[in-house]
Design a protein around this nucleic acid. Structure first.
Lengths: 154, 154
DNA sequence: GTGGTTTATATAAGTAACTTAAATTTATAG
DNA sequence: CTATAAATTTAAGTTACTTATATAAACCAC
């Protein structure tokens, strides 16, 4: 098999996919608007990552930064924006006054679920065209790449 | 198989991978520096896409914009930077005075090859851990996703 | 406890890669 | 010719990050 070709294709595809993933989709914005959060909410992939992380319970800002592999200030900003839109809340960790725990605002768990599902459907459409084996291989590939690029940093 | 889980994993992985791909790797910068282009050259994935596109011969700015799926001004900027670093040249299309043809500066074909290979090796490390089937499925997945997100724009 | 270091977060300032809108130049069509 | 359309560039603005610095709480030595 021509591995070289696959590499070239990937090299060409990856940045383009990157841009598409980052680009805010106005359609989704509209849908979200009708789901109870303000129309001007710009929900970026990063924000969705935070929302997903919070489905596993409250997280500190630092934990979010680690999970998303961004700097602490970046995590702060993501939380800022979600808080502005009334999606999440900050409260102090009773056991450590330095840490700020982030969690859904009451009732927003539901809204978050729908926002996440929006993106998920998006993805599902694409992944529905893969066999189980292909889907597994695809996710494995993403992980390997992430590890590879991560390692290449240090 | 638990598709839901795969979707969640992808949703979480994709933005992180995105950031890693975008992040400039100083190591590569160093290597590139030693290969004949100035030390301050910031070769982003977009620039590499242009260099790859040009391996197929000269391209107009508009063609580059289409291939990379970016706006014409974005293509102009990518070319600007590569031109600053003496990698590519602009010349007029003799058959249409409006179009600007972009091509490698004499002798830079070689340098471009090495810059591309740098990224390629990076990727190769990750993809070498996949079987042929997995690699194919991975690239197929990337394409499906790109199409899906592209379609979701219109 | 007081003082010094570390840790968690936030603020400030800067950058890179885009975007849209407007300007410029060349081609084309009536 | 003159009006319109197309290719590119310039200008201005946005977003998602980064690093460096500030602040406040915790921990630790003594």
């Amino acid at each position: 098999m021509d591995r070289e070709l696959l590499l070239d294709e990937t090299l060409m595809l990856l940045p383009t996919l990157m841009r598409l993933v980052e680009r805010p989709s106005p359609v989704e914005m509209g849908k979200i608007a009708r789901r109870g959060i303000p129309e001007d909410a710009q929900v970026s992939p990063g924000h969705i990552q935070v929302l997903i992380a919070l489905t596993g319970g409250p997280r500190s800002v630092g934990q979010l930064a680690e999970e998303l592999e961004v700097s602490p200030p970046a995590a702060t900003q993501l939380v800022d924006k979600l808080a502005e839109h009334g999606m999440v809340d900050r409260h102090n960790d009773p056991s450590d006054g330095r840490v700020v725990l982030v969690d859904y605002v009451d009732g927003m768990h539901e809204v978050a679920r729908r926002i996440i599902d929006d993106r998920r459907h998006h993805l599902q459409d694409a992944m529905s065209k893969m066999t189980d084996e292909e889907a597994l291989a695809f996710v494995k590939g993403l992980k390997l790449l992430a590890e590879g690029f991560s390692a290449a940093e240090e």
